[in-house]
Simulated scan of single mutants.
Amino acid sequence: MKKIILSVIVAFCSIFTVNAQDENVITNTEVSYGVKAGYNSFVARASADGNSVSVDESGFYFGIFADFAVSDKFNIQPELQYVVITGDGDNGNVLVVPILGKYAVSEKFNLLAGPQLDYVLDDDAEGLKRLGVGLALGLAFDINENFIIDLRYSLGISNRLDIDDDDFGDQDVKVKFNYVQVGLGYRF
């Protein structure tokens, strides 16, 4: 598990170190970096044959991001977040990597959309797949040149249940993770 986490961090950090050293490859690319933190709501939803049940827990997140200008209206914003989920006296820890397209509706207002990976860091995640894929959608508002507020929803796409289908007979059982985040970011 430590090798996977280290690999994700190294890969993500290499994205952050990309700059315009080779003008033949990257020309006129604006890149900004920042940190963010905020509230996180986690929803685990289990469904089987038309019936579903959800568990909602809250917590917080903090992380880093980069913002690569692709055009006047479109940026790519990869992030690396550490999410803490608290509930029933226990904490859950998740590493979240959204890679968002950011479309500028106006000078200060942006729409966000893109894939999101999440990796459960806890050793007691028995019966669950650690790695999941989701689709993140959100809004971001630039308060000023440095401060950003954003609101995001991530819909889990992949089934996180890691149990043989034979255990449930002919029922189609799925577990998906969804996230809602409200955060404040600081761009350097």
Score class of each variant (00 low, 15 high):
68 F>K: 13
156 G>E: 02
188 F>A: 11
95 L>T: 05
169 G>Q: 05
14 S>T: 12
117 L>K: 02
110 N>V: 07
102 K>M: 13
120 V>L: 15
61 Y>K: 05
171 Q>L: 04
124 D>S: 15
39 Y>D: 10
85 I>H: 08
102 K>V: 11
124 D>K: 07
37 A>H: 05
135 L>Y: 06
117 L>V: 08
155 L>G: 01
24 N>M: 14
159 N>V: 05
103 Y>W: 15
121 L>K: 12
75 N>W: 08
12 F>M: 10
86 T>F: 10
173 V>H: 04
123 D>M: 03
126 E>R: 06
183 G>W: 03
67 D>T: 08
43 V>T: 13
132 G>P: 03
151 L>W: 07
7 S>E: 04
84 V>S: 09
19 N>E: 14
157 I>V: 14
15 I>K: 01
64 I>E: 10
130 R>M: 09
75 N>M: 11
128 L>H: 01
39 Y>I: 02
106 S>R: 09
161 L>I: 03
120 V>R: 02
48 A>P: 02
124 D>F: 12
73 K>Y: 14
47 S>E: 10
22 D>V: 09
6 L>M: 08
177 F>E: 01
115 P>H: 03
132 G>C: 06
60 F>V: 09
110 N>W: 05
4 I>A: 14
171 Q>S: 15
188 F>Y: 12
156 G>Y: 04
158 S>W: 07
26 I>R: 11
164 D>P: 01
147 F>R: 00
121 L>Y: 13
163 I>E: 09
18 V>K: 00
130 R>C: 09
71 S>L: 10
70 V>M: 15
130 R>V: 07
107 E>C: 06
117 L>Q: 02
95 L>F: 02
96 V>K: 15
89 G>T: 06
155 L>V: 07
99 I>H: 04
4 I>P: 00
18 V>M: 11
123 D>T: 09
4 I>T: 04
110 N>D: 14
69 A>C: 08
185 G>A: 12
73 K>M: 03
77 Q>N: 11
78 P>S: 12
182 V>F: 15
8 V>G: 03
26 I>P: 00
120 V>K: 01
180 V>H: 06
136 A>I: 03
125 A>H: 03
146 N>W: 06
33 Y>M: 07
91 N>Q: 11
44 A>F: 00
150 D>N: 15
10 V>P: 01
3 K>Q: 15
128 L>M: 12
93 N>Y: 15
187 R>I: 00
38 G>K: 07
15 I>G: 08
60 F>S: 11
